[in-house]
Deep mutational scan, measured.
Amino acid sequence: MQNSHSGVNQLGGVFVNGRPLPDSTRQKIVELAHSGARPCDISRILQVSNGCVSKILGRYYETGSIRPRAIGGSKPRVATPEVVSKIAQYKRECPSIFAWEIRDRLLSEGVCTNDNIPSVSSINRVLRNLASEKQQMGADGMYDKLRMLNGQTGSWGTRPGWYPGTSVPGQPTQDGCQQQEGGGENTNSISSNGEDSDEAQMRLQLKRKLQRNRTSFTQEQIEALEKEFERTHYPDVFARERLAAKIDLPEARIQVWFSNRRAKWRREEKLRNQRRQASNTPSHIPISSSFSTSVYQPIPQPTTPVSSFTSGSMLGRTDTALTNTYSALPPMPSFTMANNLPMQPPVPSQTSSYSCMLPTSPSVNGRSYDTYTPPHMQTHMNSQPMGTSGTTSTGLISPGVSVPVQVPGSEPDMSQYWPRLQ
């Protein structure tokens, strides 16, 4: 039975679970980093996980050691009161100082060594604690504590007292930064006198190289990059290397530039699409467009005044059976039934097929058609009795279509119309 579990990581490298990497692998990681390889490249070359490479390099940059820390136990506290007071002093002298600059000053002034120097995250935590204590304490208590930490007896009751030896409130920041720059020169002199001055200088240079600022491109470089971006948004590694040799930039910087440029292009394309949609959409909808001609068919113009009344309900007709019959029939052209047409008796099958359309009241044959006459024609229609054979009435077949029909004066039988409509 094995005491430890061995495995293979996602890159194909072998590791022992819970145990640190061998010293030979750690040394190779540092050597590759000094030669300029990126952590992701080191991870692929040595088949070590990216997190492990970053952790080893980060500890090497901070402490200069590649040895693993002790497994188990607690780390001794490195942010001692003396170190905290120095950090507060540096922050007062130059409020814009960075944590890694404070760390360098602690090393250069001999406050800490490589073994007990606090990390950048520890210094940031100390600065946050100082800021929170400043908010919790009152103004007087804060000034007393700062005077105690600074070891001075001057008056701290006013704002300019934060910067000793100065009279203009805006000047101390520059003086403090100048003092810090002077301390940086002392850093070089002190570290050069040490035993491991060369190694420390190499480590600091490598650290500065990794902690780079934003790349500033010249106009020629920007023009070359934009020209390549117009050709393709995704250049391959050969195109990037050719462009890197042409404009004297690292291939990694060119790759990052193209990634950022593609993101910018997507944002601009989104804005262009929004403007295009806004320009195509009308600002207001016309009133006429809300009524579609496919839904509402136009009603033909009436030929006679009587045809303006298109349904039985508008003429005072309360018989719903006839109203439904007229509205359900398709529109037909106007025609006239003459008196000489043969009077065919209704076929029983045809009569039964339209039995649902006729009223059940037996008085329908005896009703006159003056009910369908509009009010303004009552006088004219009353002067001509319906009993004469020459009287013409208008029957409504569908809305908007008038059918003048000659009705025999002897017997106005409704059943004569249905064979004609089939």
Rank of each mutant, 00 (worst) to 15 (best):
Q2V: 07
N3P: 12
N3A: 10
S6G: 14
V8H: 08
N9Q: 02
N17C: 05
G18S: 01
R19E: 01
L21V: 06
P22K: 12
D23S: 06
D23H: 08
T25M: 11
T25Y: 07
R26I: 01
I29S: 02
V30I: 12
V30Y: 03
H34F: 14
G36R: 15
G36T: 04
G36I: 04
A37D: 05
R44W: 06
V48K: 02
V48R: 03
V48L: 04
S49V: 03
S49T: 06
S49R: 00
C52A: 11
S54R: 15
L57M: 15
L57S: 00
G58K: 00
G58V: 12
R59Y: 03
Y60F: 07
Y61P: 00
E62M: 14
E62L: 15
T63A: 05
G64L: 06
S65R: 09
S65A: 07
R67C: 12
P68G: 02
P68N: 02
P68Y: 01
G72W: 02
G73C: 00
S74T: 06
K75I: 08
K75A: 07
P76K: 08
P76A: 11
R77N: 03
A79M: 09
T80N: 05
T80A: 04
T80H: 05
P81K: 11
E82K: 06
V84M: 07
S85G: 14
S85Q: 10
A88F: 13
K91L: 01
K91N: 04
I97Q: 08
F98I: 09
A99P: 01
W100M: 06
W100K: 08
E101G: 15
I102N: 03
D104T: 13
R105Y: 13
L106Q: 01
L106M: 13
S108Q: 13
S108Y: 12
E109C: 11
E109V: 12
V111M: 15
N114V: 11
N114M: 11
D115G: 08
N116D: 15
N116Q: 12
N116P: 10
N116L: 12
V120K: 00
S121T: 15
I123Y: 01
N124G: 05
L127Y: 13
R128C: 00
R128N: 03
L130C: 15
L130W: 15
Q135G: 09
Q136N: 07
Q136A: 09
G138K: 06
D140F: 11
D140H: 10
M142P: 08
K145M: 09
L146C: 14
L146S: 10
L146Q: 08
